[in-house]
C-alpha cells in the first residue's frame, strides 16, 4: 500500500513539473548571489552563485540577433540602481557578458550595501536596462561541493566550452586554487569535479595561488585554459588533463608584471592571428599575441616580465570588465569619476 502511495506521489510530483528543452525545468532559480556569468549556446546563461555555492543554467529566451548596434551606456551603475530601486552606491556590478546569440549585454549585480541580493540585468543595444524577472523560466542548477559552516568559495570566473562549464573559485579559508569542470546539461548525480591547480613559479617552488581569471583558448588542436593569477603569471592548463579529483600542474608561459592583479580576459582573432586581451588593476589593458603559446619555454625561474611580448593598449583606461562583443568589437565596463560606463570599442 505504502509503495502504491509513493508511486502516486511520484507521478503527481512529475506531473507538476513542466519540462523544458535541454534538461531545463521551468521554475524560479533561487539565486543567492550573482558572482560571474558565461553564455552557452542559444541564449543559455550560466550564473556562478558564490553565496549559494551553485551554478545555474538559465534560458534567457534571448536567442535572436538584434542587429549590430554597439552597446554604449554612460553611468550604467546609476541606471541599474534606479531600475533596482536603490542608489548607485548600493549596487555592485560583478560581471559583464555579451549574449553572442543576441548581442545584448548581461550584468551580474549585487543590490544592497551588505551581502546584498542578486540581480541579472540585461542591457539592450538601445541602452534599455531590463532586470531579468527570474520567475517561470527554464533553468537547471548544480551544487558546487565544499561550502561548510563559515567556509565559502568566491567564484572568480566561469566559462562554457564544448559541453562543459568551468568555474574557478577562491576559498575564504584554505589557500588553494580550485577549478570545477561540470558537464552540461547538468546530471542529477553529477557533482562538480574539483581540480587542484598548481603552477611552477619562482625557482622550483610550486604554488597553489587562486586563479583570478581565465579564458578557454585553443593552441593548435588542443583546448587549454589560459589562467591568470595575482602578480600576473599566465598559465596554460590543457583541458584534457582536467579530470575529477586530480591535481594538475599548469605551465607558466608568461610573467606579465608584478604589483598587478588581472581583472578579466578574453581571446580573439584579428587578421588571422590569435590574441588575449586582459584588463588589469595596475597595467591597464594589455594585448598578448598567442602565436607562441604552444612553443613558449615554461618559466620556472624567478623573473621580471617574461614570455610573449605584449602591447599596452593605452587608450583603454580604467577597464574593470571586458567581454567579446562580436568578432571585431569588445564591450568594456569602465570606471569613471562619475561611476561606470558600458562601452563598445573595436578589438585592438
Amino acid at each position: 500500500m505504502r509503495t502504491k502511495l509513493l508511486a502516486v506521489a511520484a507521478v503527481l510530483a512529475l506531473g507538476t513539473v513542466a519540462r523544458a528543452e535541454g534538461g531545463l525545468t521551468k521554475g524560479t532559480p533561487e539565486l543567492k548571489s550573482a558572482s560571474a556569468l558565461a553564455f552557452g549556446t542559444n541564449g543559455i546563461l550560466f550564473v556562478a552563485d558564490s553565496a549559494g555555492a551553485t551554478v545555474f543554467a538559465i534560458d534567457t529566451g534571448d536567442a535572436k540577433s538584434t542587429g549590430d548596434k554597439p552597446v554604449n551606456v554612460e553611468k550604467i551603475d546609476g541606471k541599474v540602481a534606479a531600475a533596482l530601486g536603490v542608489t548607485e552606491k548600493e549596487v555592485k556590478i560583478n560581471d559583464v557578458k555579451v549574449n553572442p546569440a543576441s548581442g545584448n549585454a548581461y550584468l551580474a549585480v549585487s543590490r544592497g550595501t551588505g551581502a546584498g541580493t542578486p540581480a541579472i540585468v540585461k542591457v539592450t543595444r538601445e541602452g534599455a536596462v531590463e532586470p531579468l524577472a527570474l520567475k517561470d523560466v527554464p533553468f537547471a542548477k548544480i551544487a558546487i561541493p565544499g561550502q561548510d559552516k563559515g567556509k565559502a568559495t568566491s567564484f572568480t570566473a566561469i566559462a562554457f566550452l564544448d559541453g562543459r562549464v568551468f568555474v574557478a573559485g577562491l576559498s575564504n579559508e584554505e589557500f588553494a586554487s580550485t577549478l570545477w569542470a561540470i558537464g552540461y546539461p547538468f546530471k542529477d548525480a553529477a557533482k562538480g569535479s574539483a581540480i587542484e591547480i598548481y603552477h611552477g613559479a619562482h625557482g622550483a617552488v610550486e604554488t597553489k595561488s587562486p586563479i583570478r581569471t581565465f579564458v578557454p583558448y585553443k593552441i593548435g588542436t588542443e583546448e587549454n585554459i589560459m589562467a591568470s593569477y595575482t602578480c600576473t603569471p599566465l598559465v596554460k592548463i590543457p583541458v584534457s588533463e582536467l579530470k575529477a579529483g586530480v591535481k594538475v600542474k599548469g605551465t607558466t608561459i608568461a610573467e606579465l608584471g608584478n604589483r598587478n592583479q588581472p581583472l578579466d580576459m578574453i581571446a580573439y582573432t584579428k587578421d588571422g592571428k590569435g590574441y588575449l586581451l586582459s584588463a588589469n588593476s595596475a597595467h591597464g589593458v594589455i594585448k598578448i599575441p598567442a602565436a607562441e603559446f604552444g612553443t613558449a619555454t615554461p618559466i620556472t625561474a624567478k623573473t621580471g616580465i617574461a614570455g610573449p611580448k605584449y602591447e599596452k593598449i593605452t587608450e583603454l583606461k580604467d577597464v574593470v570588465q571586458l567581454d567579446k562583443f562580436d568578432d571585431t568589437r569588445a564591450i568594456l565596463l569602465v570606471k569613471t569619476a562619475a561611476g561606470f560606463d558600458l562601452k563598445t570599442v573595436p578589438l585592438p
Binding site: 563559515g150 565559502a152 619562482h202 617552488v205 604554488t207 595575482t230 602578480c231
Partner: peptide, 21 residues
C-alpha cells in the same frame, strides 16, 4: 564567511612567498 559576519584578509602572497619579485 557564509554567515556574512567574518572577513578573511590575505597578506599579499607575492610578498609572503619566497623569491618573488
Amino acid at each position: 564567511s557564509t554567515e556574512g559576519d567574518r572577513l578573511t584578509i590575505l597578506f599579499h602572497p607575492g610578498r609572503v612567498k619566497q623569491g618573488l619579485v
